[in-house]
């Protein structure tokens, strides 16, 4: 009944291999590393339409990732999308009049929020609101508008 050393060693190797595999899935395959995001501060932006934006979508500035979408709600007053952004602590010099827009990465890619810096001397703090926002482009709307203007022109 007592097991040999080699049994224990192989079982140990098996368990280790399983854990390593899980670790690889976490670090290499999935976005687990994103959860180790540095602590940051939260600001709020209201959008007319967020299209396909999701919680945890990236927030970028000049293409550099500066944060992630933390939460998405519907505002009960304005019926706009109420998006909470989690910005990394190291980017603490973003002007208060910064504009937020929703872009699509590539033609069919995922959607993300792009920030364009303003000119104010004051910087965004935890709990601040980004006033200038531009909604997501919804393809059907654009095509609709295009056809409408075409028809009007004739």
């Amino acid at each position: 009944m007592r097991q040999s050393k080699s049994t224990e060693i192989t079982v140990g190797m098996f368990v280790a291999a399983g854990l390593v595999a899980l670790f690889v899935l976490a670090m290499k395959v999935s976005n687990f590393t994103d959860f180790t995001d540095e602590a940051g501060y939260q600001v709020v932006a209201e959008f007319e339409n967020i299209g396909g934006l999701k919680v945890r979508s990236p927030v970028t500035m000049a293409g550099v990732r500066v944060g992630r979408v933390a939460a998405i709600d519907l505002s009960p007053v304005t019926y706009n999308a109420h998006v909470t952004l989690n910005l990394y602590g190291s980017f603490d010099t973003i002007p208060t009049d910064t504009a937020a827009s929703i872009y699509t990465a590539g033609l069919l890619g995922e959607q993300y929020i792009g920030l364009e810096a303003g000119a104010e001397d004051e910087f965004l703090k935890d709990g601040d609101v980004i006033e200038l926002t531009q909604p997501a482009l919804v393809l059907e709307q654009i095509i609709g508008q295009f056809l409408f203007s075409k028809a009007e022109g004739e």
């Binding site: 098996f14 368990v15 399983g18 595999a21 899980l22 690889v24 899935l25 290499k28 395959v29």
Partner: peptide, 16 residues
């Protein structure tokens, strides 16, 4: 019960 998740993780990692 212990082996199965480990085996599945190995399967997925090797598969990737």
């Amino acid at each position: 019960f212990i082996s199965m998740p480990l085996l599945a993780a190995i399967f997925s990692a090797v598969g990737v």
